[in-house]
């Protein structure tokens, strides 16, 4: 996982609440056995019409937002299905950070597994950022180390984040490698459990 420390990038506002993971990456793209290449399906029904042609009015398709790396979104972002294909698609498309008033729990977790930073800011501040992103200058700074978002006009917005999660993103830690260092704790737990709940042990 790539570390995330600070990002200067273009931001695109998507002013819709409750964007669910079915919308972020529709089912026809879930048949893959790979993590890569999902960007083509990101927000598919928003971006393309039924004939598969890009919808010019949709904000992600506008030339001034090409190459955006920050997505500013509405409340309860990423609700619904647990599919990690959603953060994979966002990242494959080029997003590295999201800013929203709230996220669904599973999606939020999945972001951290992939080095995608989900910033939480109060609704009013997200609205302010969206308004700025609609203006002429779209370049924002998202600084995880300092826990701030800086808008093009230079306004600074501080955000909270769990320190354990922050550290993992900054260091790009491999969660499995870290847990495997706990192998002796897991062994001991399993030994205790084999006594307390013997019916769960398969007779070998």
């Amino acid at each position: 996982m790539d570390p995330f420390v600070r990002l200067d990038g273009r931001a695109v506002p998507l002013d819709v609440a409750n964007i669910d993971t079915d919308q972020l990456i529709p089912k026809q793209f879930l048949k893959t056995v790979e993590r890569e290449g999902l960007g083509k399906g990101l927000l598919f029904d928003f971006r393309f019409d039924e004939a598969g042609n890009p919808k010019p009015d949709f904000i992600l398709n506008k030339p001034e937002y090409k190459g955006s790396s920050v997505l500013i979104a509405g409340d309860n972002f990423g609700c619904g299905s647990s599919r990690e294909h959603a953060p994979w698609a966002l990242m494959d498309y080029g997003f590295k950070a999201i800013i929203a008033p709230s996220y669904a729990d599973i999606f939020y977790n999945n972001c951290f597994s992939n080095g995608l930073l989900p910033v939480v800011l109060p609704e009013a501040q997200v609205r302010e950022l969206m308004a700025e992103a609609l203006g002429g200058n779209h370049v924002f700074t998202v600084d995880l180390a300092e826990q701030v978002v800086v808008s093009p006009s230079g306004k600074t917005f501080s955000f909270e984040i769990d320190p354990t999660r922050k550290e993992k993103l900054i260091k790009g830690l491999d969660a499995i490698g870290e847990t495997l260092q706990r192998a002796s704790d897991i062994d001991r737990f399993e030994q205790r459990m084999a006594v307390a709940e013997p019916w769960l042990e398969k007779a070998s």
Binding site: R35, H85, I106, S113, N114, I176, T179, R182, I186
Partner: peptide, 23 residues
């Protein structure tokens, strides 16, 4: 019982544990 993402599926396969914050 709850849903997890694929990275967590991999984590559970490898360690039979999950890193969690309490709700």
């Amino acid at each position: 019982a709850h849903g997890i993402g694929t990275s967590e599926v991999e984590h559970v396969l490898a360690t039979q544990t999950l890193r969690q914050q309490k709700a």
